[in-house]
Simulated assay, not measured.
Amino acid sequence: MKKICIALDYNPNSEKIAAIGHAYARALRAETILVHVISEAAFYAMEYEPFMGYDSPFHLNNLDMVKELEQGAENFLLAASLHLGTDGIKTQVLEGETSDAILSFCRENRVDLLVIGTHSHSVLENVLMGNTAVKIVRHTGIPLLVVPTKMEG
């Protein structure tokens, strides 16, 4: 194993996912890449007039908003890499539908192991919204480590 990709979102459980994934990378002496997906940042850049009595702030300076979303994600990944305390951790902000963006990145970068977390969503939430972990499990062609993040108690 040469490359391990760890997908993180803004959930506090990402700390556990990052730590476990990075422990595998260290043990295997593999390159670590942290990724975060911005779901369709371009959506925020759409120009539209106020509607239904709502004047969204997103239509003002919308290119700046996209840059702020990207910068926030980059800052998040940098903080995560510094928290792990090892030099040489790479980071990458991805854009698009979460599972597709992660899987495409892994294919294009010849990742050997993908580490993701799974949040404890109800069956109804999974049916209505889909579940990123489930989509990745169904469509990945590389080894996958799924870290359960359900709160114990």
Score class of each variant (00 low, 15 high):
residue 22 H to M: 08
residue 134 V to D: 11
residue 50 P to T: 11
residue 100 D to E: 13
residue 41 A to D: 09
residue 142 I to W: 01
residue 30 A to Y: 03
residue 108 E to P: 01
residue 26 R to Y: 00
residue 29 R to M: 12
residue 58 F to H: 06
residue 98 T to S: 14
residue 25 A to N: 03
residue 16 K to N: 05
residue 46 M to A: 10
residue 17 I to H: 00
residue 110 R to N: 13
residue 140 T to P: 08
residue 89 I to K: 05
residue 140 T to C: 13
residue 10 Y to C: 11
residue 125 E to S: 15
residue 10 Y to P: 03
residue 34 L to N: 05
residue 129 M to K: 14
residue 36 H to M: 14
residue 145 L to H: 08
residue 73 A to L: 05
residue 124 L to N: 01
residue 40 E to P: 00
residue 129 M to R: 09
residue 151 M to W: 08
residue 33 I to S: 05
residue 151 M to S: 14
residue 94 L to H: 07
residue 35 V to W: 04
residue 105 F to Q: 04
residue 142 I to S: 03
residue 108 E to F: 03
residue 97 E to M: 14
residue 53 G to E: 11
residue 62 N to A: 01
residue 93 V to C: 08
residue 128 L to F: 09
residue 116 I to K: 00
residue 55 D to L: 04
residue 107 R to N: 12
residue 149 T to M: 05
residue 16 K to Q: 12
residue 125 E to G: 01
residue 20 I to R: 06
residue 84 L to F: 04
residue 118 T to Q: 11
residue 16 K to P: 05
residue 10 Y to G: 15
residue 150 K to G: 09
residue 136 I to L: 07
residue 121 H to C: 06
residue 139 H to I: 00
residue 25 A to D: 08
residue 98 T to L: 04
residue 1 M to H: 06
residue 13 N to M: 13
residue 94 L to S: 13
residue 112 D to E: 07
residue 23 A to D: 10
residue 153 G to S: 14
residue 111 V to L: 06
residue 153 G to W: 15
residue 152 E to C: 01
residue 139 H to K: 13
residue 103 L to Q: 11
residue 138 R to V: 03
residue 57 P to S: 13
residue 75 N to C: 12
residue 103 L to R: 08
residue 143 P to R: 07
residue 89 I to H: 01
residue 18 A to M: 14
residue 20 I to Q: 11
residue 3 K to N: 12
residue 41 A to W: 01
residue 56 S to W: 00
residue 137 V to D: 02
residue 25 A to M: 07
residue 135 K to S: 15
residue 66 V to F: 00
residue 133 A to L: 07
residue 127 V to I: 13
residue 94 L to C: 10
residue 59 H to V: 09
residue 67 K to H: 13
residue 133 A to W: 01
residue 151 M to I: 12
residue 4 I to Y: 01
residue 25 A to T: 01
residue 96 G to P: 10
residue 136 I to V: 15
residue 8 L to F: 12
residue 49 E to Y: 08
residue 89 I to A: 02
residue 5 C to L: 10
residue 98 T to H: 10
residue 138 R to C: 02
residue 6 I to Y: 02
residue 84 L to P: 06
residue 22 H to P: 02
residue 55 D to A: 14
residue 140 T to Q: 14
residue 85 G to D: 08
residue 126 N to E: 13
residue 83 H to F: 13
residue 23 A to P: 00
residue 73 A to C: 10
residue 76 F to W: 14
residue 7 A to G: 06
residue 58 F to M: 09
residue 71 Q to N: 15
residue 135 K to Q: 11
residue 98 T to G: 13
residue 122 S to D: 12
residue 129 M to Q: 07
residue 137 V to A: 15
residue 55 D to H: 05
residue 1 M to S: 07
residue 8 L to Y: 06
residue 93 V to F: 03
residue 15 E to N: 09
residue 133 A to V: 03
residue 7 A to Q: 03
residue 91 T to G: 01
residue 45 A to V: 10
residue 118 T to F: 00
residue 61 N to I: 01
residue 26 R to E: 14
residue 7 A to Y: 02
residue 48 Y to S: 12
residue 73 A to M: 04
residue 60 L to S: 10
residue 110 R to E: 10
residue 46 M to Q: 14
residue 77 L to P: 02
residue 19 A to Q: 09
residue 53 G to H: 09
residue 131 N to L: 04
residue 6 I to Q: 00
residue 53 G to A: 09
residue 131 N to A: 15
residue 40 E to R: 11
residue 29 R to E: 07
residue 91 T to W: 00
residue 47 E to V: 11
